[in-house]
Design a protein around this nucleic acid. Structure first.
Lengths: 141, 141
DNA sequence: AGAGATGCTTCGAGCCTCGAAGTATGCTGC
DNA sequence: GCAGCATACTTCGAGGCTCGAAGCATCTCT
């Protein structure tokens, strides 16, 4: 219930995110991605086992019908394929295609390059990440 | 074009914002506000002269038709009124009503209280705000 | 006064989001 | 083993958000 420090930090984090999204727009359009589909692509790490849709939905803070819709878009664009999860046949995992991996790399690189955060030094970025992650780690209020 | 420091900071700022929005949801619903209308309410500071819609649209990173739509919602809910800007009769300023000021205070307080950032100390919050604002201040790339 | 610029609104299209209901598969206890 | 419940996803339909194009009122500049 304090005051201006908290307000300033929340406003700044809002502004950082909004500008990142704005600046990423053209790069997304080049690959016919929207912000929503891009974020879905982002959270599928090609260096880890393909995640079940349930996990992807959690990472995106969205619900199952919503992810189903976005997955359709990525499948239509040839960037992702659905596969049955061998460990649970109810579940579907999202597998990046070769094109999906390439587009993901390219758009993430463009997004990071243009992010306002890219103007900070590595030391400053480590401080930011440390502080923000400290805030995120506490028990779910 | 570096690497993991930047990625970690961008991901953390995304997660901070998404969690803030998630947690604010119930407080918004109590006043029949959506995330979009709440942000419009947020950027109208009752302690400053009522801002022209053009200024509000810039603060929200949205365009004129979009703000016009959101302003309609706030007017319908009795939180805001349009008034002619005396210095330019083309322009409309958005004026908070008494109800608008009260709801704005209440919902902003709830949002800040529940934000993950509320778990940091004032010193940490000052560091966060300083670093993020440093990133934001640089010339528009 | 006329021409062009600016601020807002309206309209229409498209995308995003979500609750409810349906299908398939897994799990538990009898 | 199988009945009943739980879980993962999909489909459907409604509603909200966003934006380009076009229109109106007003300002500005000459």
């Amino acid at each position: 219930m304090s005051g201006s420090e908290l307000t300033a930090a929340v406003v700044a984090s809002y502004e950082i995110w909004m500008r990142t999204v704005d600046l990423a727009g053209p790069a997304l359009a080049r690959h016919r991605l929207t912000e929503a589909t891009f974020q879905a692509l982002w959270v599928i790490d090609p260096d880890e086992p393909p995640p079940p849709m349930k996990v992807v939905a959690e990472r995106l803070h969205c619900n199952a019908p919503n992810l189903s819709f976005m997955a359709d878009q990525l499948v239509d664009r040839g960037m992702v394929e659905r596969a049955v999860d061998p460990s649970d046949r109810r579940s579907r995992v999202l597998v990046l295609t070769a094109k999906g991996r390439q587009v993901r790399d390219e758009v993430i690189r463009a997004t990071l390059e243009q992010s306002p955060l890219n103007r900070l030094t590595d030391t400053e970025l480590r401080q930011v990440a440390t502080l923000l992650n400290r805030a995120l780690q506490s028990p779910a209020s």
